[in-house]
Design a binder for these strands. Structure first.
Lengths: 109, 109
DNA sequence: CCGTTATATTAGCATTTTCGCATATACTGA
DNA sequence: TCAGTATATGCGAAAATGCTAATATAACGG
């Protein structure tokens, strides 16, 4: 595989590599939301959220729709939602293993 | 979801967000490889590859096994392989859409 | 046209990442 | 123990990222 394709994938992962952007995508995975609604749900600064949205837009992970005064965001390809769901599963496995390890250490103390 | 969990996910994505590390994981998804074998397949500097392996190790995405002189790496959880496979699919969709768009532009020129 | 609301963009700064190079560590066989 | 091979680590510079504060743009109601 040419490196440019790997660069493309790396760029997508890079876009996902921030807690705020993950939060944004988790909210959006339940449906379209306005920028303002996201800002409120996240409880973060307007400019900050807008910048994170710009990152997601640049990678075409989200698309936006202008309606009068507001801008509504949604996830462009549901595959991204699946990636996040897989990540959730991965996280649970990792967590369980860690707990198991701690448990083991407890017993052999 | 607490932000610390999102930070954890973000850290995993961060670890995947580099073309070289994606290449490493794609090679490893076919099975265990020694550091030297990876360096040869990648055609990159030894120290550089070693540093990327360190990133993947720190996030526990890969594990290593020492055998005499060499160190063999493998992917710890197959879920990571699935994430990469999904990414491949995502990439194809995106590519097809882009081509379709270009095609459209061609016809309406 | 004006003030207000919603959103985006810019600039400056601190932090993090990546790379190349040099060096360190670990194991092997003679 | 010594030379050689395999791998890891430390360090400094350059580039990318993220935050805050300020400013810009766009649409609305009056």
């Amino acid at each position: 595989m040419p490196d440019s394709l790997r660069q493309f994938k790396a760029d997508i992962f890079q876009a996902l590599a921030h807690p705020t952007r993950i939060a944004i995508l988790e909210f959006l995975s339940e449906g379209e939301l306005s920028a303002g609604a996201l800002i409120e749900k996240l409880g973060m600064d307007q400019a900050n959220v807008s910048q994170h949205l710009a990152v997601l837009r640049a990678r075409q992970i989200v698309v936006n729709r202008k309606a009068g005064n507001q801008v509504f965001y949604s996830i462009r390809d549901p595959t991204i939602g699946k990636v996040l769901a897989l990540m959730r599963k991965y996280f649970h496995t990792q967590l369980k293993e860690t707990i198991g390890m701690l448990d083991e250490m407890e017993h052999t103390r």
